[in-house]
Design a protein around this nucleic acid. Structure first.
Length: 182
DNA sequence: GATAAGATGTTA
DNA sequence: AACATCTTATCA
């Protein structure tokens, strides 16, 4: 099976659409020739109008990445010990991103059913912030994957936040064993 | 400069 | 259910 790189235009769309269509796509981690791969099975959307989003309070130093043009990564540290991997969506000057919450292992990965875990497993830290994920020259990039039928996509509320916790902006693949648990 | 809270994971 | 542990944002 030939897998194509995801084009930048993919990210320059509505954040919820990007979050939904990222399901089934493949994250590739190239660590000096060591290749790790995982299929995205769970995502969450965050936008500028969303009180739970880092970009909600404007262009702070950390949120600056979110306001850049889509197609790059956004990595931040949470609770002082865990990294979270996001992909920036929308055009320049609109702050939004899609949080990757869980992967299904494909190659050289195990136990990636949580945002902090998948970053630890793939050795992703803040030096991976703002990298282009639409090029196979990058240490982390994305490939087109299975098209997930609409009926197999579950839409529900997000996890681990207090603000706007009732937004149905979390998406995951139905019956997939690797989705993070409550 | 100080302080409070956080898009989590592990352990008991 | 508690805790580990530190960056970021928001005050003063």
């Amino acid at each position: 099976m030939i897998l194509n790189l995801i084009k930048k235009e993919f990210f320059l769309r509505d954040t919820l659409t990007v979050a939904k269509e990222l399901l089934g796509c493949v994250i590739v981690r190239n660590d000096n020739g060591l290749i790790q791969k995982g299929k995205i099975v769970e995502t969450e959307a965050y936008t500028q109008e969303d009180p739970a989003c880092h970009a909600y309070r404007g262009k702070t130093k950390r949120a600056l990445t979110l306001y850049k043009e889509g197609g790059i990564s956004y990595v931040y540290l949470i609770y002082g010990m865990y990294h979270c991997l996001n992909f920036v969506a929308r055009e320049e000057d609109y702050g939004s991103a899609v949080l990757i919450r869980a992967l299904e292992p494909i190659e050289n990965v195990e136990n990636t059913n949580g945002p902090g875990k998948l970053c630890r497993e793939m050795k992703i830290d803040r030096s991976f912030n703002e990298i282009n994920v639409c090029s196979d020259e990058s240490p982390v990039y994305l490939l087109e994957g299975d098209k997930i039928p609409e009926k197999n996509i579950i839409t529900t509320t997000r996890i681990g936040i207090k603000e706007a916790a009732d937004y149905p902006w979390r998406f995951y693949i139905k019956d997939n064993k690797f989705v993070s648990k409550k």
